[in-house]
Amino acid sequence: MTHPESRIQPPETPSREEDERLVRAAQAGDQDAFGQLVGRHQARAWRVARGLVGSDEDAQDLVQEAFLRVFRGLDRFDFQYAFSTWLYRIVTNLCIDHLRKRRRLHSLSGALEDDGQDLLEIDLPDPRDEQPSDALVSEETADQVRQILDGLAPHFRTALVLRELEGLSCKEIAEVVGATHVTVRWRLHRGRKLFLDAWTRLHGEDGVTSPWDLDNESEA
C-alpha cells in the first residue's frame, strides 16, 4: 500500500523572492520583467486552464487573458500572497466563469445545477459491449475520464485540479478559490466520491484497476 501523500507532489515552484523582485520591476514599468514572470508561470497557468476547460483554444485564450489581467492589476498586488496564488486565482476564476457560461449555453435537459446534484447524468458506453485493442482502451479511457470530469461542477473540478495536478495544499487552495479550508476539503471529498461513483457505474466494482498503466503515466 503506497502512502497517498507520496502520490501528490507539488511541481517545482519558482522562488517567491525572485517573483517579488520581478513584480516590483514590472510595477516600475519594466515590461521585460513581466515577460520573465510569464515565462516562469505560464506552464502552471496552462496546466490549470487546460485541466479545467475542454479545449486547447479556450485554455490559450483564458491564460492569455489571465496574464493581461495580472499586468493591469500589478499595482494592486498584495505581497503577503505568493504571485502564483494570485495567478491561480485569476486563472481559475476565468475558467469557472467560462465553464458556467458554456454550461448555460449547452444546458441539457436534466442537467443539474451546482446547488442541486453535483454530477450530470452521463450516458456512457458500456465497456463490456466490445473488446477493443489495448491502444483503443487508453483512448477510450481518456474519453471516459473527460466525460466524467466535464460532468462535475466547476468548483469540484477546480479543487481536484489544484490538489491532484498542481499539488497545492488545502490551505493554498482555500486562498486561491476564496473559500475556507473546510469547504475545500468537502469539495475534494465530494468530487472524488462523485468521480468514483461515475467510474464504478462504467466499469463495475473491479473496473478501477484500469487497463491504463497509471503508475508509468503519472510518473512520466
Binding site: 487546460r50 479511457t141 491532484e164 495536478l165 478501477v208
Partner: peptide, 15 residues
Amino acid sequence: VTLVGVRRAFWKAQS
C-alpha cells in the same frame, strides 16, 4: 488511489 493517478495522468497528457 488509482483514480487519483488516472486523473493526474489524464491532465498531464492534456497539458
